[in-house]
C-alpha cells in the first residue's frame, strides 16, 4: 500500500510512448496537455493566484467595497495584533478547535471503526447508521444539535432530568459551547470512520495470526501491527481535521445565532459568537469584519494570517505524509 500524496513522476513506471516516432508523439502530447490543462490553469489564475495576490494587496489598504481602496501601510496588521480584542478571542477559539477537534475526531473515528470492524451481525446496518449523520447538511445538523441540546426543552437535558441530573447549558454556556460544537462534529465524522474502517479491514490477516503465534496480546497487536499499517490514513485524518478546524464557520455562526434566541437573522453582528464570543471563530470574525462591517481591508489582513497558518499546516503535514509513505512503501 502506498499513501496518498506523492508525486506522479514516481508512479510513472513506463514511459508514455515507447517505440518509434517518440519526438512527434511528445509534441502531440504537449498540445493535448495544454488542452487538458487550460481550463484548470485559467481557474488557478482567476480563483487562486489572483485572489491571493489581491488579498495581500487589500490587506494594506482601507477598503469598504464602495470607494476605491486607500493604501494605509501596515495599519490593519497593527490593529490585528495590538488593537482588536475580539480577534484574540477568535484566534483562541479556532486554535482550541484545531487542537481538540483534531485529536478527538481521529481518536473517535478510530474507536468507532475498530468496533465496526469487529461487528459480525448487522454490520452493514451499523455502518450506515454511523455514516449517515455525516451527510446531513451542516446547517441542518447544527439546528439539530442546538435543539437537541437546548437547556430547557431539549431531549438530552430532558432525559438527564429523568435520571435526576440537572443538565448543563450546552450552547448557552460559554465554557460548553465549543465542546457542544465538538460533539456535533464527532457526530458527523462518518467519512473519516469509513476511511479508517477500510484501512483496518485492509490490514493483512496473516500478520495478526503470526503475532498470535508469538503470544502477542490484543493491545500489542494493535500497537505493533494495526497502528503502523494504518498510520498514513490516520495522518490523512489529521491533516483533514486541522484544515477543517481552521475554516470552521458554518456550525459556529449558525449555532451561536440560533442559540442566542434572538429574533435577528443568523450572522447579525449583535448575536454572532453567542454566548460571550465563545463560538466566534477566526473565519466568523473575518466574515463579520469583511462582509457585515465592510472593513474589507482589515478582513484581508485577517485572511493573510489565516492563509499563512493553514499553509504552514498543509506543508508540514504533506511532508510528514510523504515521509510516512516512503517508510510504508519500504515495509510492504
Amino acid at each position: 500500500m502506498t499513501a496518498t500524496l506523492h508525486s506522479p513522476a514516481r508512479e510513472q513506471r513506463t514511459s508514455p510512448a515507447p517505440g518509434k516516432g517518440r519526438g512527434r508523439i511528445r509534441n502531440r502530447n504537449r498540445l493535448w496537455l495544454l488542452v487538458f490543462l487550460s481550463p484548470w490553469a485559467i481557474g488557478l489564475v482567476v480563483f487562486f493566484i489572483y485572489p491571493l495576490l489581491a488579498t495581500a494587496y487589500f490587506s494594506l489598504t482601507n477598503y469598504n467595497g464602495l470607494d476605491s481602496a486607500n493604501f494605509v501601510g501596515l495599519r490593519n496588521f497593527v490593529y490585528l495584533f495590538t488593537g482588536d480584542e475580539i480577534v484574540r478571542t477568535a484566534a483562541y477559539n479556532t486554535l482550541w478547535l484545531v487542537v481538540v477537534l483534531t485529536v478527538l475526531r481521529v481518536a473517535f473515528s478510530l474507536g468507532v471503526a475498530a468496533v465496526l470492524a469487529r461487528v459480525q451481525k448487522g454490520g452493514g446496518l451499523f455502518r450506515v447508521l454511523c455514516y449517515l449523520p455525516s451527510l446531513v447538511p451542516p446547517v441542518a445538523a447544527t439546528l439539530t444539535f442546538v435543539f437537541v441540546l437546548n437547556p430547557q426543552i431539549g431531549p438530552v437535558n430532558t432525559l438527564l432530568r429523568h435520571v435526576g441530573i440537572d443538565g448543563p447549558l450546552w450552547f448557552n454556556d460559554p465554557n460548553l459551547s465549543k465542546p457542544a460544537l465538538t460533539l456535533l462534529t464527532l457526530w458527523g465524522s462518518g467519512e473519516l470512520m469509513i476511511i479508517i474502517l477500510a484501512a483496518l479491514l485492509d490490514v493483512p490477516k496473516d500478520l495478526y495470526e503470526a503475532a498470535q503465534l508469538d503470544g502477542a496480546g490484543a493491545w500489542t497487536q494493535f500497537r505493533r501491527i494495526t497502528l503502523p499499517t494504518i498510520a498514513p490514513v490516520l495522518l490523512f485524518g489529521m491533516v483533514n481535521s486541522i484544515i477543517f478546524a481552521l475554516q470552521y464557520f458554518t456550525q459556529a455562526i449558525v449555532a451561536g445565532s440560533v442559540a442566542s434566541g434572538s429574533a435577528d437573522m443568523v450572522g447579525n453582528s449583535q448575536i454572532i459568537g453567542y454566548p460571550n464570543n465563545s463560538t466566534l471563530t477566526f473565519p466568523v470574525w473575518l466574515y463579520q469584519q469583511g462582509f457585515r462591517a465592510y472593513h474589507m481591508g482589515y478582513a484581508s489582513a485577517m485572511a493573510v494570517v489565516l492563509f499563512v497558518v493553514s499553509f504552514a499546516f498543509t506543508a508540514l503535514l504533506i511532508r510528514q505524509l510523504r515521509g510516512a509513505a516512503h517508510t510504508e512503501g519500504a515495509r510492504s
Binding site: 437546548n150 437547556p151 430547557q152 426543552i153 447549558l169 448557552n172 454556556d173 434566541g261 434572538s262 429574533a263
Partner: peptide, 15 residues
C-alpha cells in the same frame, strides 16, 4: 446566571 439562561432557552420567539 445558569437559571436565567435555562429559562430563556425555553421561551418562545420574540414575535
Amino acid at each position: 446566571q445558569d437559571n436565567l439562561q435555562k429559562f430563556t432557552a425555553g421561551l418562545g420567539q420574540e414575535y
